[in-house]
Nucleic acid binder design. Structure first.
Lengths: 285, 285
DNA sequence: CGGGAACTTGATAGAGCTCAAGCGTGGTGG
DNA sequence: CCACCACGCTTGAGCTCTATCAAGTTCCCG
């Protein structure tokens, strides 16, 4: 089923929140970032004037499974991912989760809390994480120090708005295969942005979480990944992914029927034919 | 099919962008709004200090079908709906539209353009509209005059983020019936906010546009509305809607099978039974 | 009054969900 | 260090919901 051996893939998958090979100080995480570091993380051009060390932002460690903020919790803080992977979910009146995003390095989250003075989402660490805490008051104060910087901050909010619109477009109009394909490409892009390989990486979330995010069941996600694997678009083994044809994944709308699928199709057609014939009066010689 | 006569419904549906009965000056629209009026529209508390007449925002008229901004157009302006109804769409690489919102009175739009310096969406008037133009520079300048006001402005962006998350939740996890039901309730809420009736109103968009927004086909929307009408949850006649049981619509997950549906179900089951019996060896007396 | 767009309704098919069973893997405790 | 267990993943079979295709009807606008 796999075109590449597991060990080959895994050996090259070192991005993400791992403590192997780091010194003690780094493993424990740094404690503070200044404004310039924060801007770099958020991909705000730091050529902007007047960025100094006036502001320091505290870091905080979260273990896998811990919640950074919960629904209904009073809002007073924004968060930036320094390292690690998380998921942001909303929960409806009957307790069902809906994943609305997978924050990772450089992503700002918690903005949903500004309106209404409390968070409407809940963000959970999928791996051990290091998060930069940005009190909303400081956030506002920083904007006031510099007009360009302020515009850039609005730009970060806007980026999130656009990201969500893209997801709406995906959920509203694409087939399961296209959704999964684009999800892989979007992960690829984000890993590439972070300086890791965009071609091979480990998924940080379960099939269940991917499916929830894409409006699909975990079985459909699993089947779709297997189908991509079978036609050589990707290699999958559990969480390990290799993308073999990113352009094709980008534009994929529906997978051409594979041989296995063709067989199933044929079998189905044959069955239907047989049923039809049974319904017709049979002339017995 | 309709529980209420058309004329009864229509007679009460006077909200929205209509020029009947208004004087000349109003029909042509006012030309400028000051900051206080803009804040009121955006539902920003105006108890805030220091809101004066320093800023004036120009109005602009759009006829039904006209575009307020288009995809790729350089960004330098935000827009607030003063009156009328619009739709905001994204367009994918193969030219398919996806409706991501229906801006109406008091809604801010165009924020997707901040990031990337050009609009990623296109907003089209569904009726004649009056739009307040807010140059992004002024928008920033207003925030700088007053800290509370600035927080409120971020709140408006955040509100939009939350609205989109809600839509993601709807698209990701609800049945067609639940999607349509919640869509009606959300329209109801917004009409009520605007001071109109939340119980009866006219849809301003086609079935096609509703379906596109909800990730459904126009036929499914039409059938679902008819089904709601049949069980007495609502009355529908073309664009005219009366909601008879808003709480039920709010929590609806799946419609209990109606008599017609039950008949179809029974017929189907019977057919399946018949097919089964045919497959079994028949003992002929 | 005519033409086109919007809407309704029906029949049918297929994509994806549900239910179910089995397997791999990583973590844990003896 | 090994064995076990729970969780995540895969795969299969059947069914359901919704899309698709196809007429008709109504309404609105010129």
């Amino acid at each position: 089923m796999l075109n590449t051996s597991n060990s080959d893939i895994r050996a090259n998958l070192s991005q993400g929140n791992t403590s192997r090979g780091l010194g003690l100080a780094q493993r424990q995480g740094k404690l503070w970032s200044n404004l310039k570091e924060v801007c770099d993380l958020l991909r705000i051009p730091t050529a902007l004037s007047g960025i100094g060390d006036d502001y320091q932002f505290q870091h905080m460690q979260f273990k896998s499974g811990q919640r950074v903020h919960t629904i209904g919790q009073p809002f007073d803080m924004l968060y930036i991912v320094y390292s690690g992977f998380l998921k942001t979910v909303i929960i409806d009146e009957s307790g069902n989760e809906q994943v609305v995003g997978f924050p990772m390095k450089g992503d700002l989250f918690g903005m949903d809390g500004i309106h209404g003075k409390q968070y409407s989402t809940e963000t959970v660490a999928l791996s051990n994480c290091e998060i930069i805490l940005v009190p909303f008051k400081s956030f506002l104060a920083v904007g006031r120090t510099n007009a360009e910087l302020e515009a850039a901050i609005y730009g970060v909010l806007s980026r999130e708005l656009v990201r969500e619109q893209l997801l709406i477009g995906t959920l509203g109009s694409l087939s399961a295969e296209a959704r999964v394909a684009r999800f892989l490409v979007s992960l690829s892009d984000r890993f590439a942005d972070m300086g890791y390989s965009g071609k091979q990486f480990n998924l940080r979330m379960t099939r269940q979480e991917i499916g929830n995010y894409l409006g699909l069941t975990l079985e459909t996600v699993s089947r779709t990944l297997s189908a991509f694997n079978d036609v050589g678009l990707i290699s999958v083994d559990q969480r390990a992914i290799v993308l073999h044809d990113i352009p094709a994944l980008k534009t994929l709308r529906r997978l051409p029927p594979s041989q296995v699928r063709a067989k199933q199709q044929a079998a189905k057609a044959a069955r239907a034919e047989a049923a039809k014939r049974e319904e017709e009066p049979v002339i017995v010689g």
